[in-house]
Structures are given as C-alpha cells and as structure tokens.
Nucleic acid binder design. Structure first.
Length: 275
DNA sequence: CGCCAGGGACAAC
DNA sequence: GTTGTCCATGGC
C-alpha cells in the first residue's frame, strides 16, 4: 500500500542512525526491514509518499506503531531556537527525518548488549548470525527467506560455542544471562514500558553487561521513553565540545532522546577535524 | 602495526 | 565517588 506521511520521515537517515541493525538496503531509497518476527519492504517515493509492501491492516497494526507515525517530529524540532542553541538547531535541521522507532524491547536489549565497544557493521553481523543460529526461518513477500529475531528461550538454549560463533566475544555471557533472566521473568520488559525512567534504568542495569548507556538505549528505542539520553563516545564529544558549560536537559524534556539522535547523527556524519 | 568502535565489570585508590 | 585495566573482534 502507499501512504502519505505528513511529517519528518527519511528512511536513509533512520537506517544510518544506529538505533536499528536489521535494515537492509535493497534498492535506491528502498529497504528490507526486519523487526522481531516480521519483515517489510519499504520504498520512499516522492512528496512524502511511501510504499509499504503489506496490506492496510498489517500497516495499521504493526508498522504505523513501529515507525512512530503518530508522533509529530516536526513539532518536536520546533522546540529548538536557532539563536539560543545554534548547534542543536543545525543538527536538527541537517538530520530531520530521523524518528525514534518503536522496536521490540527484547530485541533491543540483546542488540545493545552486543553493541558495546563495537562499531555498527560488526554489531549488524553478530545480530544476523544470532538470528541465523537461533531464529525461525520465514519466507517474506518476495519469496526470500529471512531469520526472525530469536526468542529469549531460543537464545538461552544456545551453548557457549554457538554464541561465540556469532562473534560475541566476551559478551556471550551477558547475552546468555540476559536471555535467562527474561525467560525466568526476573526482568519483565513489557512491564517496564509503563515504568518511569529511573525504575526502568534500575531494572535494566541489574543485568550483567547492561550499564547506563545500554540501559538508556533500550529504554529509548525499545521502551519508547523519548526523554532518555544515551551518552556514548560521540555524545561525550558533543557535550564537551559544544556544551562546555552544560547541556539544557530541562529545556528539551520530555524529548531529550530525539535531540540526542540528531546530535549523534550530525556529529558522526561529519569529519571530526572540521570541528 | 596501532587505534578505535553507540561500554561495562571489577579492583584499586 | 572516581579512575584504570581488561575484555574479543573487526575495520581502517
């Protein structure tokens, strides 16, 4: 089906934003997107139109929520004043089109445990290998096979050797333990969706291998808590270089996570030496 | 070869 | 509380 989206929405920018690891380019402005057990092909057409290769019911039930299409990102961007915060204004203007996806919390948890201390291509490869070794194999609408993101049960049942085959390195223990914790109900990710931010972070950081940064990524991308502000190596540079006297978190609450995404993308896409 | 990547656990101050 | 070291792997 074709949908017209009257808001910031740029597939390429989201694909490169580092929040999702299973968006595969298939053609110009066109992606095959795997989300949990589902897969969809999306093509960006002209003048705000998008082709979603699914029926209208699936679009309404699954993808509208996944792409956060009920949120108005241009209205969020309008909260930035070009004169009082020129850096954030520039970042938002350059990176508009990024949206915060509503990803599956379990998939997000494992993905960001895997992400620690690695670059994005390596993260994508490990997740793909994990899906291949433990995920269900399904045929998509174009007759191509893909692997669903594996369940907690499937991941928990993997051996050390199988996890190491996914190039997880020392993180294999974290992945295994997190799967067991979720399986036992020690951490209930669905409940955390409606928890306040401190509670969510506290619960997530109880897991070994989940510190403040990974926990805030899970809360932002998996629990859709838009005020979360993950601080990684790039954001650390932004804060020290652009906001040496402090960043005004109160001013941009409850959307700190959205602006974090703009700044992250803006800084990472630009050569550091020019700044 | 060395350095860094969407960090975190753990020990030592 | 803050700081240093190590962790496994790939890209460059």
């Amino acid at each position: 089906m074709i949908a017209k989206i009257d808001d910031d929405f740029d597939l390429e920018k989201i694909a490169k934003s580092g929040q999702c690891f299973r968006w595969h380019p298939v053609a110009d402005r066109s992606f095959r997107i795997i989300h949990g057990a589902r897969c969809v092909y999306v093509e960006q057409l002209d003048s705000g139109c998008f082709r979603f290769e699914c029926d209208e019911e699936t679009f309404n039930e699954v993808w509208q929520g996944y792409f956060d299409l009920d949120e108005n990102y241009s209205a969020i961007r309008a909260r930035v004043d070009a004169e009082s915060d020129p850096f954030l204004w520039r970042a938002s203007e350059n990176e508009k089109g990024i949206r915060i996806l509503c990803q599956d919390p379990w998939e997000t948890l494992i993905s960001f445990i895997i992400s620690q201390n690695r670059n994005i291509p390596a993260i994508c490869r490990s997740i793909e290998m994990l899906a291949e070794i433990a995920g269900e194999k399904v045929e998509d609408r174009r007759g191509r096979m893909y692997y669903c993101f594996p369940s907690a049960e499937a991941v928990a049942s993997l051996s050390q050797d199988e996890l190491l085959q996914c190039k997880l390195g020392y993180r294999w223990k974290y992945v295994k333990a997190a799967a067991e914790a979720v399986l036992k109900g020690l951490v209930d990710l669905e409940v955390l969706k409606s928890a306040d931010s401190e509670e969510a972070i506290a619960a997530l950081t109880q897991l070994s291998g989940v510190g403040p940064k990974v926990a805030s990524c899970v809360a932002l991308f998996g629990l859709h808590q838009l005020d979360m502000f993950p601080v990684d190596t790039w954001i650390r540079k932004v804060l020290s270089n652009e906001y040496p006297h402090g960043y005004p978190f109160e001013k941009y609450s409850p959307y700190n996570g959205v602006f974090q995404q703009y700044m992250f993308a803006y800084y990472r896409n630009r050569l550091p030496e020019s700044m």
